[in-house]
Design a binder for these strands. Sequence first.
DNA 1: TATTGTTATACTCTATAACTATA
DNA 2: TATAGTTATAGAGTATAACAATA
Lengths: 162, 162
Amino acid sequence: MAKTATGQVAAGAMIDEAAAVDIGELSQLVGYAVKRAQLKLYEDFLKCVAALQLTPAQFSVLLVLERNPGRNQTEVARALGILRPNFVAMLDGLEARGFCARSRSTTDRRSHELSLTEKGRVALLRARRIIASKHEARLSGLLGPDDRATLLRILGKIVREF
Amino acid sequence: MAKTATGQVAAGAMIDEAAAVDIGELSQLVGYAVKRAQLKLYEDFLKCVAALQLTPAQFSVLLVLERNPGRNQTEVARALGILRPNFVAMLDGLEARGFCARSRSTTDRRSHELSLTEKGRVALLRARRIIASKHEARLSGLLGPDDRATLLRILGKIVREF
DNA sequence: TATTGTTATACTCTATAACTATA
DNA sequence: TATAGTTATAGAGTATAACAATA
């Protein structure tokens, strides 16, 4: 009884055999807090879209292709912070599943103009709905609209100006 | 002249040859914003302590050992979210550099009681000073004390309750 | 039987150099 | 010569199974 593997105190003011390890000032370091939050959010995102077999990175590619049809691999990869060599296998996977297409540009035969297929559009629609109704909804419920907006504002400042 | 590789507009209202790719609603997804901010912060942290040859993960281990002497590998690894098998090589590296020590527990000869050496204490002191004066100082300067505290509060809520 | 530290291993991410075909 | 897509490859980081010593 009294399963206290994570160090919680059992009912009745019973002290756990081993006090919790103290991470000290680590919890006051922004980088550490961001890292821990990122792992939590990534894990939940993955669980939410598991049924669709999409990773956060794949989801982000579909989103960008929808909004930027005709762009080439270099442009899309750079916008998402993905290195061009690593983007190749990613696109291969999405293309093999029929979610997107490469077509040689007529004006520059080195480039591939990227586009979402109809199947890709459907997958993106489903994913977007699940993310909104499960993942983001739960997060908004926890934080409330004000804190959610504040968090986005502060993180955006770090991304753009730090 | 007019180095616009990243899509910035040059002086004189000159329009860049290729408009920036639009990442759309991605910028409104908390998970994406957190991920991008995490990469920025990690990169700067790494640059700041490059002279000391410490990664954020190694820094966090030294911090926890200082505040929790005598704990074993399982306890410290779990507090930091590191899997026990992966913690072995990490400790090997820190021990080889003389920053920490393992000693067999007298009460449970399976465990190693971990401790910081004097050399580890010195390295931690230096790292802490650099992080405070360079990394965190620059971030606080960008955000201001209120936004920094707010960010820590919201991220802490996600880590603990999401 | 359960736990600690450990080894082995595998899979994903990320990073760099270099090739090809085009420009 | 420079660029787009690609290949090969190497290094982190992370994950699980299993083993020896000990409880």
